[in-house]
Design a binder for these strands. Structure first.
Lengths: 205, 205, 205, 205
DNA sequence: TCGTAAGCGAGACGGTACGTCGAGTCTTGCT
DNA sequence: AGCAAGACTCGACGTACCGTCTCGCTTACGA
């Protein structure tokens, strides 16, 4: 059972089982309305109507709109583990695929809403934070492998470095909302690996 | 006149002048409630009550919650222009001071909420985006000076590099909500300038 | 179904049924507030608060304050049909009972307020006028029986005569607001029946 | 000084005297708006705008909308003293002229509003009641003369009889709001004088 | 096979906030 | 001190959703 899903598969109980059909219809309606209306304009009433479901059926499964949106969010794809043998290759492949996800799913629209809510909602924070940690693991693993290979200095802070790598992407998702141009990934990876200072070998002489 | 402020300095008009006291009380109440509740849970009614003011007094000055929040936000301090003669010095001083601001004002609590709303609220986006652009200018200027001095490669993308620098700070503000430890600034600046790969001169010969 | 009542007896519908308890609490609160404040100072918000009910519960049943007040008003007792065999007896019994009602229910306090509003409120007028017409029918019927019996001239205008009979009572309700002394009824009925001029048989000779 | 007017002519005071021009402009605007909008839709703000006057100028003179309307009302014409030598003649002339006033001024529209308000507003009642008493005096005087002439029984209650005479007119003003047809006056006066029972001399002998 | 417990859509429940308007009061500069 | 103008606080408007609560009705399990 996932962190965010409710215990629908727990101890077989008497009575009518919950409708899996309704469950998915609700999540689908949620994602659809998130795309068209955004998080704060999303109403549980609207989700219920679109899903052809009673409000109680939603509240029976999720304690609040935030939790509902969070489960919808958790269904969206994330980073995939990639091992090409080099950090440049790993990061390039992972980030390119991630940008593709950001550009083709509601993920980019939902992420800032949840982060914005997280700050004032400890309950959400409790669910959201581990999820976020989990979702960046592929990059952490790639960094660990790179350190083992000697490609990267061994004294780096993994979390901080992951922040450095995700930073430019997240900055754009949060502050511009526009499509992420995959062309920025090359320069970003290059800067992270080798810095922005001039390189001796690039200089004549 | 700023983008978000109203034309308070315009020609003295007939009738009772608007109360400057009420104006500031409203902005103060807005900031206080943004910290505790966030943007979407902020109600104009709540602001009015806390400021000891009628709702009409708020709507007379700001056409919507968005405009009100933007003016309150724009009162918070931001990056200061710094010129120490080196990029390391400039970034160190600027970011250290910025982290101090994040740790001592409601800025860190408000920023994610606004970013989360921005994605679905074009009206907010229209006011917020230029404000954000303006607020990162000191770093852009420092980078420009560094390029002129030859400290930094001349082919860098200024915006992308600014994203790279702010990234780790913003990531922590948005996804952890905790105090920012100023100790991360050194490694961040170092990584941005020289990358995370091993350095030839650090290696034993 | 009455003009003012809603179709509560219609086919049982889906969903939670409307609370009969809330319905009566709202009407009671309406009458109480009409007495203390009058129609124009009556607020739906005030009724909701006093009835311990949400505003929506009121608007779900009555489309406007006018309809609500009309249903509350229509619950108050009115003239009762009486047939004693003589017009003097009918009027005496009916009016005595009506004065008792005026002196013991909120009717006397509510009536002027509604009449005052009626003049400028077509919606109210549309509901109120038929109700008023209906409420004076017992007197009209008594007059009709009296005409049949030859007790009263056959060329009288029933409505005008009813106005003549109610006139003194209504004048006092509207312009003094005090209790109506039942002792005026004898002289009123006498004057209506036999006029105020001296009577031949009362004169000597 | 009238009962309802404020002390505009009281002890000559320091400062600028109140503008008599403004005073009349306000009353005119009030009557004009009463005709077009009715009492409840009349706003002090609207009166001020139409009179080209500040709201404070109105509130300086009248404590509320009701008082303002009352003074406007008191400017409207009322019953005129008439002495034709017979009660039938007096009442005929007076009532015919009064009905003409009701049909051609806002009086009929204002009267119910004030009566409706009177019931819940003791302050208004204090001003309104003596005015009403004063306005019916011509009928009382005509009755007194008729008693002296022996046209009317000497044991009648003057007030009650006045109520009987005004009753049908007031009933129609309050409960129908329509024009008063002057043709009802003949039957009303006849009924008051001689009753509605069959007359011996009308019967065949 | 059938009772029953839980789920179902529907919709009413008491609340809260919306953005607007008018009430009655207060505060300018001017007359 | 009065004036026009227009700010002030307050509170009601009728609507939309909140999250909860009945309704009458399935539905599928286990006695």
């Amino acid at each position: 059972m996932s962190i965010v899903t409710s215990n629908s598969e727990s101890t077989a109980s008497a009575g009518r089982p919950r409708s899996e059909e309704a469950h998915q219809a609700i999540l689908d309606a949620t994602l659809a309305l998130l795309v068209t209306s955004g998080f704060s304009a999303l109403t549980v009433e609207g989700v219920a109507t679109r899903a052809g479901v009673g409000k109680a059926t939603i509240y029976r499964r999720w304690p609040s709109k935030v939790h509902l949106v969070m489960e919808a969010f958790s269904q969206l794809p994330g980073l995939k583990e990639v091992d090409t043998g080099s950090l440049v290759g790993d990061l390039g492949k992972m980030l390119r695929s991630y940008v593709e996800i950001l550009n083709s799913t509601p993920l980019a629209a939902i992420l800032p809403s949840l982060a914005g809510e997280r700050a004032h909602n400890p309950e959400l924070s409790k669910l959201f934070d581990p999820l976020l940690k989990e979702r960046r693991q592929p990059v952490i693993h790639a960094l660990e492998r790179a350190v083992e290979r000697g490609e990267v200095r061994s004294d780096i802070d993994y979390d901080l470095t992951a922040d450095l790598i995700f930073g430019p992407i997240v900055m754009r998702v949060f502050f511009t909302g526009s499509r992420i141009n995959p062309k920025i990934l090359g320069p970003v990876i290059d800067a992270v690996l080798r810095g922005i200072t001039p390189r001796p070998r690039d200089q004549p002489g």
